[in-house]
Design a protein around this nucleic acid. Structure first.
Length: 431
RNA sequence: UCCCCAGUAGCUCAGUUGGUCAGAGCAUCCGACUGUUAAUCGGAGGGUCGUAGGUUCAAGUCCUACCUGGGGAGCCA
């Protein structure tokens, strides 16, 4: 007996097959009954006709509840009334694993607290499957994009000594070495690898112990961080717009059905093509002030400012060359305006905010030492990082793209917590 | 860390100026139904109103504290 997955049923029309999966709906009209089965590739309707069935099979139908796992055998036939266009005329039913009648997630609205408490079961819903498929498609597209362009993927450590940026770190004891910290970026290691291999990227989880409670924050999230030798800030932004456009195009090409399941307005994605508008920080401040913002030169841009700036565009926007004080120590001083650094934030449209932070890196040994001093960072922790400038320094630039923010934007979701299977947030460690 | 909001049945919620306010829908269970699409129809069971105090003749409702979440800010991706 062949056991196709539900998405393959159409190529088995007329054959008798066994479908294995979980019951999502049960409906009965006395002598004819329907069970909808889900297997992760789609849903299929199984039809039970009492007069044509072994009484034991009809009796077994009566024991089907939400999420009972089953193996249903029957003939595949085209049926316009059935979800998916094909249904199974049942001849045999095996109940593999019964499911008590208190299965918590119903086909109706639930509150977010309840859903997150039941995340392990919530994953079974069609909407969550669609999101997971888009995320998966993007992860594959990331790999393809860099592979095609000759980048090496470098996996950087998650357990690190104190190094990175300024915001909160998770810590843990580490043998005789004292405290280890969960990485909040792989960038500094990526810079070392760029000097070794030229074009590299990292792809892995990162951790921030910030007590952020917003729709854009998780304490554990996945980041893609390319680092390219001989790229300047301008090259860096070109790589970013090519990259983001590639990702969007891939999902539009291969995951239409999932975007439809999510009711995403794809017209808002089809305009995402290079080049992306570039706005100097200084100009951005002037524009924002004209629009009524209270922002002053030297301030970082707040969430409202970002939204205000992006509202006139149909694609992501770069805001570049922020004041030095607002940005990290490793960013290269802007020779045309030393108050600023050669950096960019890539802001997604529709209010999704920053999906990328990038910069050209400071390649001057003395200036980098000075920045580490000015920021009050522990110089000895950065010894190896400084040696990258001591032994054959080089122009280089890179960026970090937040995977969850990107998936949330492309899927059109209100919150990034749905975008990862088991989100880690300030008040959630389970399941 | 700060600001705002919420907590009533398994779930989603209603509950008016404090006075039949212990309610609905869905789910569950029982029954009916030969093409259902979150099926429909009839019936039944189901509650320490987040916790602890307080005000009052009377508190789901007002006050205080705490707990648990949610939304936002800051910070960032």
């Amino acid at each position: 007996m062949s056991t196709p997955r539900i998405a393959e049923l159409q190529s088995h029309a007329g054959q008798t097959v066994t479908v294995r999966g979980w019951v999502t709906h049960v409906r009965s009209s006395g002598k004819i009954a329907f069970a909808v089965i889900r297997d992760g590739t789609g849903v299929a309707q199984a039809v039970f006709v009492k007069s044509q069935l072994d009484p034991a099979v009809w009796e077994a139908f009566g024991r089907l509840t939400l999420e009972t796992s089953v193996a249903v055998t029957g003939q595949v036939r085209a049926e316009p009334r059935a979800p998916g266009g094909f249904e199974l005329g049942v001849t045999a039913l095996e109940i593999v694993g019964p499911s008590p009648s208190d299965y918590p997630i119903q086909p109706k609205e639930h509150g977010i607290d309840f859903l997150l408490d039941h995340r392990h079961l919530w994953l079974r819903s069609p909407r969550q499957r669609a999101i997971a498929a888009v995320r998966h498609e993007l992860e594959q597209a990331v790999q393809d994009f860099f592979y095609e362009r000759g980048f090496l993927r470098v996996d950087t450590p998650i357990l690190t000594a104190a190094i990175g940026e300024r915001s909160g770190l998770f810590s843990t004891e580490y043998f005789e070495e004292g405290t280890a910290y969960l990485a909040q970026t792989g960038q500094l290691y990526g810079e070392a690898a760029a000097a070794a291999y030229g074009k590299i990227y990292t792809f892995g989880p990162t951790f921030r112990a910030e007590k952020s409670k917003t729709r854009r924050h998780l304490t554990e999230f996945w980041m893609i961080e390319p680092e390219v030798a001989w790229n300047d800030s301008n090259d860096n932004m070109r790589l970013q717009e090519d990259f983001v456009s590639f990702l969007v195009a891939r999902v539009l090409e291969r995951r239409r059905a999932e975007l439809q399941e999510l009711e995403r307005d794809v017209a808002r994605l089809e305009t995402v093509k290079p080049p992306f508008p570039r706005i100097n920080y200084t100009d951005a401040v002037a524009v924002l002030q004209k629009k009524g913002s209270a922002v002053k030169w030297g301030d970082d841009l707040g969430a409202d400012d970002e939204a205000l700036l992006v509202e006139d565009y149909d694609r992501p926007v770069f805001v570049m060359n922020y004041p030095k004080e607002a940005k990290a120590f490793y960013m290269k001083e802007n020779p045309d305006d030393p108050r600023t650094v050669l950096c960019d934030d890539c802001l997604a449209p529709e209010g999704y905010g920053e999906i990328i932070g990038g910069s050209q890196r400071e390649d001057d040994y003395d200036k980098l030492v000075q920045r580490i001093r000015d920021e009050g960072l522990p110089m000895d922790a950065y010894g190896w990082y400084l040696e990258l400038r001591k032994y054959g320094t080089f122009t280089h630039a890179g960026f970090g793209l937040g995977l969850e923010r990107t998936v949330a934007w492309i899927c059109g979701l209100q919150h990034i917590r749905e975008v990862i299977a088991f989100p880690r947030m300030m008040y959630r460690l389970k399941p």
